[in-house]
């Protein structure tokens, strides 16, 4: 049985449809990537899974529980077993790196401070930032902030982690570090990972399974190898990053030639 089962998901923002009949299965212990162009609601999907938003139609089940039918306290219990890595890291700016990682432990457990210290140092060691523990979040680079956020997300030993655009705006070195970390965390801790991204190369490297999302629907899904071989032109354009194809380079409208022959617009 998959860990997350999304069935017939509909979600509207105002009159705009973000999702129209989306079905996704996320397998346990695997890295599943959800990819698509900017503005297709990938982050919205994570917020729906986390119960921060409610779908207009359809169900989302996490570990057999319908997220949007849960009571507030049950939802909070479930969230303790979900980690989420925000695009900005979402570190608490008034706490040090150490206190940020300790935050979920202090909020949700009664562990003595000495044990919290051991756990925090262990998590920070795993992301390679044990010696940065006394820094303030403002002193970290973007990649370091994401690594701290990752250490914080796994502090409570969750069953899954959702990564929101983990590679955006990273230099090649920290990108490589993150790719490596996500892969290692997944294998070492037996996590289920969901990666939302539009960085094709990095995502394809670590993903076991990919869903391609566009215009509110799943266009294609399969392993990275299957997708590369896909016959769909749209998939090919997205995977290879071609400037023109089914998604046109030019914004829809009359032809250039016609516009040139209509000088009256300047009159």
């Amino acid at each position: 049985m998959p860990l997350i089962k999304i069935r017939d998901l509909h979600f509207y923002r105002g009159n705009r449809a973000i999702f129209e009949g989306v079905n996704i299965d996320i397998e346990r212990g695997k890295v599943t990537a959800i990819m698509g162009p900017s503005g297709t609601g990938k982050t919205t999907l994570l917020k729906l899974i986390g119960g921060q938003l409610r779908p207009d139609k359809g169900t989302i089940e996490v570990d057999g529980q319908n997220v949007h039918k849960l009571s507030r306290s049950d939802l909070y219990e479930l969230r303790k077993r979900m980690g989420m890595l925000f695009q900005s890291g979402a570190l608490l700016t008034d706490l040090t790196v150490y206190d940020n990682v300790a935050f979920p432990l202090r909020e949700h457990t009664d562990l003595p401070e000495s044990m919290i210290r051991d756990l925090v140092l262990m998590k920070l060691q795993a992301v390679g930032l044990r010696n940065a523990r006394n820094l303030q979040p403002s002193e970290l680079s973007g990649g370091m902030a994401r690594r701290v956020a990752l250490a914080r997300a796994v502090a409570l030993e969750p069953m899954m982690i959702m990564y929101d655009e983990p590679f955006t705006g990273q230099d090649p070195i920290s990108m490589g570090t993150l790719v490596n970390l996500i892969h290692r965390m997944n294998d070492a801790m037996g996590l289920t990972s969901i990666v939302v991204s539009h960085d094709v190369a990095e995502t394809a490297e670590i993903a076991d399974y990919i869903y391609l999302l566009s215009g509110g629907k799943i266009i294609e899904h399969g392993s990275p190898v299957q997708l590369r071989r896909s016959g769909s032109q749209w998939v090919q354009q997205f995977m290879q990053g071609l400037p023109d194809g089914p998604v046109p380079f030019h914004y829809a409208g009359p032809e250039f030639k016609e516009d040139l022959l209509k000088p009256e617009e300047y009159a």
């Binding site: 917020k47 986390g50 969230r79 979402a90 570190l91 608490l92 909020e107 949700h108 409570l156």
Partner: peptide, 9 residues
Amino acid sequence: SGMEMMAVD
């Protein structure tokens, strides 16, 4: 938002 996802109100 991050706090909410960490099950902290």
